[in-house]
Write a protein that binds this DNA or RNA. Structure first.
Lengths: 353, 353
DNA sequence: TTGAAAGCGCTAACAA
DNA sequence: TTGTTAGCGCTTTCAA
């Protein structure tokens, strides 16, 4: 049994090497080690001491204990991320962007999947107990009480993809109004005049934003809406139900249906097929998000592509800005979506696949 | 300015209320507060004191500082999760399962997206510095040096979806051999005899396992392989290239192609179409994973469904078992995949869609 | 340029 | 049943 043996149970397998051990090995005081290992204070250490410390640290396999450092400084180098449903394909690339930005600075991401808005505040409170330095919210509803809590707690936070309407927190979103204008203008150009909209849940910022964008786009074109139905959710089944309802509303189907979401659009396919209508022959359909494989469905879906990964990266950047400069400028960053034309809106299936 | 005002910079917005404040408010010693607030030691506190403490804590909005507790106990109530690519649709449900299991116990998940196996060990080291209590790896290669490091460090870890071959760590995987047997038996039943396989990367446990499963399934049926091509990656493009190569290898195409992955299968579609062959008319195709929307592609893809969420949940459970009982029984849990029959293997397209 | 010393907030012996 | 006390590993004044 060696002399400086430390009790190491299975519970405590991680580096038992402390800053004190490194100091002893390097023959200096532990405060000198702390200094030498901190990039910002390294300059105040002589070259030979620096070398000795670094060598000792390397030799012993020293790994600074972030829990201790967090207790002392209040910084954990960790941000919390709340997403509503990680299996919704919109969120993985956003999360990837956030994680990549955090990792590029040596920070970590704590992930929480928030099922149901009632869970959000307790989760944020637990994250606060964990001393996260900031939070990225991808879960906001239009008037989200969580924002009150966060602002009240003085917590650093930003919103991504969905921003609440108060504008009290910085946010990074896609331009939903532009997205709908792109879709409407496109179907108009292919010859459609009677255009309907399958809207998303109006409790969500995106649901309302896209609906307003659709209406504005029609006004710009001096067109009347051929009907709007609000979906219960951004899901295929909700889209199917909504499309069926839309068809039931009038004798003649619309020439085009602009959907607030790809899954909704695929649900619209289902209802249109069930009604014996063909896409795009009888009705053109557009989606929103360009989720994986919508280029493989039949017919391939014309949709709106969002820079999801960039949304996440920029949101994290905004958070780090706030953290660094000790200030929260409640900026809103709006990124541009892009139209992706495929076969669900082809005027004529001349070049059939 | 109140008397017990604490300096609260923008950096330190989180609860400045400490256990000491609660003790003062409740008129007891801070160790009594610690006891009263710990479920395991609560019993040793009198009812009236317990009540007073809880009330004071609630009134002051006390939130235990986990960094301090972590420093003292070595426990952060956090597990690290490494995934190779969060935008690969296999991983979100696995991650969801892990997160849900962790959340059900009040634990948190630190997520790292590991791009490139060289990044893995540095990330684990940084997680160790963060004092994570354990790690879930979804990134393993067949003989992964990371496992050496983890075992050497005495770190608690489990593998999910992909398990390395040494069996030194507990793991939760799907039965790849059974999966391929299900696929082969199915296409045999639909009348195919000349069956080929598009294999996954042989550096990955799943790539090799499925290839072996395919070969075994053919042996069981006393059939000769109609060709095997190994894909560069689990991607559509790699599948397309591999299928093209397979077609070039012999004059007559196989009757069925059993693929190691859905994306690979969709790439096979591409190559088959390019060669003027129809699915399933000329060649039947099966996939693996049942990723979202493969029921919507044309033709809808027959594939193998995995219990991805359960994979994640069970992996987390295994990790918590190890953490609780201070022992690492290197158990392997093998879950059963399930065949999902769709139109890419229909014997006759009688009921065309 | 380095060392000494205090203390972040909490837990867990041990003592009363 | 409650209080006293030491200290987890680190950062950061302050002094030398």
């Amino acid at each position: 049994m060696s002399e400086n043996h430390r009790t190491s149970t299975a519970h405590e397998p991680v580096s038992p090497v402390t800053i004190r051990d490194v100091a002893r090995a390097a023959g200096v005081h532990l405060s000198t080690v702390s200094r030498a290992l901190d990039p910002r204070r390294r300059a105040a250490v002589s070259a030979e001491v620096l070398e000795a410390v670094e060598q000792a640290a390397r030799r012993l396999g020293y790994r600074p204990n972030r829990a201790a450092s967090a207790l002392r400084t209040g910084r954990t180098y960790t941000i919390g991320v709340l997403v509503p449903d990680i299996t919704n394909p919109v969120f993985p690339p956003i999360l990837q962007g956030i994680e990549a930005c955090a990792a590029s600075r040596g920070w970590f991401v704590m992930l929480a999947n928030v099922s149901g808005s009632a869970m959000a505040q307790p989760i944020v409170e637990r994250m606060l107990a964990q001393q996260v330095d900031g939070i990225v919210l991808a879960t906001a509803s239009r008037e989200d009480p969580l924002v009150d809590f966060i602002v009240g707690a003085g917590l650093h936070a930003v919103m991504v993809n969905r921003a609440d309407e108060s504008g009290r927190l910085p946010s990074v979103v896609s331009d939903d109004r532009l997205a709908m204008k792109l879709a409407v203008d496109h179907v108009v150009q292919t010859g459609c005049q009677r255009i309907a909209h399958l809207a998303g849940p109006q409790s969500l910022p995106t649901g309302m934003g896209r609906l307003q964008g659709f209406e504005q786009a029609l006004r710009d074109r001096k067109l009347e809406s051929a009907g709007v139905v609000v979906c219960e959710a951004y899901s295929r089944e909700a889209g199917r139900v909504a499309m069926a309802r839309l068809l039931a509303q009038s004798a003649v189907p619309p020439e085009a249906v602009v959907c607030s979401n790809d899954l909704v659009a695929l649900g619209a396919y289902d209802a249109l097929h069930a009604a014996g209508l063909s896409v795009p022959g009888d009705v053109a359909v557009t989606g929103h998000n360009d989720m994986p494989l919508v280029d493989m469905v039949h017919p391939s879906l014309t949709t709106i592509r969002l820079p999801h990964r960039e949304l996440g990266w920029r949101a994290a950047q905004l958070l780090f800005d706030a953290l660094d400069e000790r200030q929260m400028s409640a900026a809103t960053v709006v990124l541009r979506p892009e139209l992706v034309v495929r076969n669900s809106t082809r005027p004529l299936p001349a070049h059939a696949d």
